[in-house]
């Protein structure tokens, strides 16, 4: 006697294997190439040739920041207009504020200027820390600007 199985219906199943293979390959590709983007910004410096070595105008002398390094390139000492500050960046900032008079924002070209004179082998990171300290500070989310005109003295060999 022939018995028909009524419960079994013909299933037309799609073969998913190849799709899953490709999908996993894509996933692995994106996971391997994923890199968290770090936000970057700039300190703008306008430095025409000769300005740092030219004859200084006695009426408009820039502040002079001297940075010295030890043999390993670490910051050894700082002095602002011959005032020794050790390696204390908040102290540097406080001195800049007292020297330029006020913490009020200054307008571009007319603001005070600072000349950074660093030892040749001083690590760049320390100079950026010094630039950060003299450029301004954060008051909540607002940035209060101090000195915008920055220039570098001739490299010391």
């Amino acid at each position: 006697m022939k018995i028909r199985n009524k419960g079994e219906m013909e299933k037309n199943e799609l073969n998913m294997t190849s799709m899953i293979d490709i999908v996993f390959l894509l996933l692995v590709f994106f996971v391997m190439t994923f890199k968290i983007v770090e936000m970057e910004g700039d300190f703008s410096v306008r430095m025409p040739l000769g300005e740092s070595s030219g004859v200084p105008d006695p009426t408009d002398l820039p502040l002079k920041l001297r940075l010295t390094s030890d043999a390993d390139g670490r910051l050894a000492s700082m002095s602002l207009n011959d005032i020794s500050l050790g390696t204390d960046f908040p102290q540097l900032q406080a001195n800049v504020i007292s020297l330029i008079g006020n913490t009020a924002p200054v307008e571009g070209e007319d603001g005070p200027e600072i000349e950074i004179d660093s030892d040749y082998n001083l690590r760049y990171e320390n100079v950026i820390d010094a630039i950060t300290a003299v450029s301004g500070y954060k008051d909540g989310n607002q940035v209060v600007k101090l000195i915008e005109k920055i220039k570098f003295a001739k490299p010391r060999r």
Partner: peptide, 26 residues
């Protein structure tokens, strides 16, 4: 070394370039 960066700036200045941006991380 900061001196190396200054040398780069000097060479760029010799090409009459005056606008520099020191890029740093936020």
């Amino acid at each position: 070394a900061m001196g190396d960066v200054q040398e780069v700036i000097r060479v760029a200045q010799e090409q009459n370039l005056i606008n520099f941006a020191l890029r740093v991380k936020e």
